[in-house]
Design a binder for these strands. Structure first.
Lengths: 330, 330
DNA sequence: TTGAAAGCGCTAACAA
DNA sequence: TTGTTAGCGCTTTCAA
């Protein structure tokens, strides 16, 4: 495996010049650069990551923290992040935070502190105060998809607006017995919490009382949605589900109860999941691929890479009609 | 950020001893190790990855090549791989091979050759001859989930047996007009190709002619399955789909055609996807999480890590009945 | 624009 | 069992 000396020898220059030519940092004459490039190509030379990192302090690697890999939203965001980073020559190191507390600590205490990454993208995780602190301490840019903390860049949709939009749509159709299925968290800074707030605000603004019995928690899976919906469907004419997976679960629950959608019950989800289309499910698309791309561009920009500056403010979402809502039967 | 010298000073030993104590390589007395551990903990010292790698030649990082992230099978395998690697203190660097040819080349030419990884896990990708060559050249263990190449370790289910099992089940129920929806590849060493062979062999063994009109290609998505199934359903009493996503698509196609499952048509899929349960879909579960775990253990074993030796031979699969098949209507 | 040379922070011979 | 020391393969001052 060729080293930088081999390239230097073949090109008839010093290793310093090879380094400058190949990295693009520092002045190199056009002719020299061409000779170095040719020599490098001829030898199949690729700079060794660890040596380069040790000498320069840059790793060209971004760490990604993600809570689950097998959920559509996360894996789609991840696709967006990796695509952009790869285009810019960055590697991606994946840290899958499970529910195992010891493992989680090890990621924050050790993995992230090995100086293996130049930056971190956090997907939909709510770090504790201490974890925020640790993220800041690594001394590299951190971008959160979701609500950020102090001095931490964030890419997010306005989840309260999402909840408000979906609920308002149902209200406008004339529904008043609108159930919500989502997740209960003690942390108000999460997407489910914000969507829930948006739901309640829309109801209040419309003068409709918020009925606690019309909320049912369920984890963000089809099964969770089915179980949660089964509890509220008997007393609701419409359901706002905090994710498309939950909404699909609600469709199954409706079927089990002999309810037709949308004749007997209207259902709206959130995400833009592939399945929403097949089920003819109204949904608020939040463009997860774009969120991932934007997060990646945000870290790269913070690292001084030449990327289109991501626009400030929350990322867009869009209500997509597919036929799962209609005015309530009278 | 504390360095190894700080730890050495605080513990009253040399840096070499700190290195030995913390890495576990080389002899250190019990008392010394305790002092070093205490000093390291006190200073919050974590070894710097690039310096350690440069000096030792080991990176404690495994590269993973995956074609798609947002498909259930791949992301589940990936979960299994990352879980095991993390348990052993290994990082995971993710390379998402898209269909972009230039990007793919860059991964094989550059990314994998930066000596950033100690080993590679390839998920469901069919490398070209040249790419196999490049994988071997990096001089590290490579494990493929799917059919391997020369001198490359492989973790795989016997996909021909999978196809044979599913088809045989339908034959035993009395079906003869059994359609297959899968993927067309010119490469015989892929899962879809093997499942297709198993399907045809089962038919031949049962004395049923293989009807080319009963095969329809579709990419491995719900949409692909729906379109493919729409073409073969009119002339089939049963469908063997090469994945659960395809099978779910077939369910939608059946519904669109006014066919009931299983009264009018029987459907079997492959994977063990969460949705199979909700749709009451018969499926061959291939335990992707276990496949991922086994692949990770295989690389680790090859690197001399202390892991349970993965059993040889193909990984298990299991036919799971959920009510989507029955004898053909007469 | 180039080259010489001093590290980057750690590991692993080797000697004690 | 421990310390001394010479690198690992690059990058980056600094001087020319």
């Amino acid at each position: 495996m060729a080293g930088i000396d081999d390239v230097a020898r073949l090109a008839g220059v010093s290793t310093a010049t090879v380094s400058r030519a190949l990295s693009g940092r520092g002045p190199v004459s056009k002719a020299t650069r061409a000779r170095v490039d040719a020599a490098a190509r001829r030898l199949g030379y690729v700079v060794q990551a660890s040596a380069s990192s040790l000498a320069s302090g840059r790793t060209r690697c971004i760490g990604i923290l993600v809570p689950l890999l097998d959920r559509w939203f996360y894996s789609t965001v991840l696709s967006g992040v990796t695509a952009v980073l790869m285009e810019h020559g960055y590697d991606v190191t994946l840290y899958n935070l499970t529910t195992d507390q010891a493992e989680r600590e090890r990621i924050f205490d050790t993995f992230l502190r090995r100086q293996r990454v130049d930056g971190v993208v956090v997907i939909a995780i709510t770090p504790t105060d201490r974890e925020w602190e640790q993220l800041r301490e690594i001394g590299h840019p951190v971008v959160v998809i979701g609500e950020g903390g102090d001095g931490i860049r964030s890419v997010m949709v306005d989840d309260e607006a999402v909840g408000h939009t979906a609920t308002t749509r149902l209200l406008e159709l004339g529904h008043t017995a609108i159930a919500h299925i989502g997740m209960v968290t003690d942390d108000p800074h999460t997407s489910p919490a914000a969507r829930h707030r948006g739901y309640e605000r829309a109801l209040r603004e419309a003068g409709v009382a918020v009925a606690p019995a019309l909320f049912a928690p369920g984890d963000f899976t089809v099964g969770g949605g089915r179980d949660a919906a089964a509890r509220v469907l008997p007393s609701a004419s419409a359901v706002f589900a905090a994710s498309d997976e939950l909404a699909v679960g609600a469709l199954f629950a409706a079927r089990d109860l002999g309810l037709r959608v949308p004749e007997d019950v209207s259902i709206v989800g959130v995400d833009g999941h592939e399945l929403a289309e097949f089920f003819g499910l109204d949904s608020i698309d939040q463009f997860p691929l774009q969120q991932g791309r934007r997060a990646a561009e945000t870290v790269l920009a913070a690292l001084g890479e030449d990327v289109p500056a991501p626009p400030p403010g929350p990322v867009p979402f869009r209500y997509v009609s597919r036929g799962s809502v209609r005015p309530p039967a009278t």
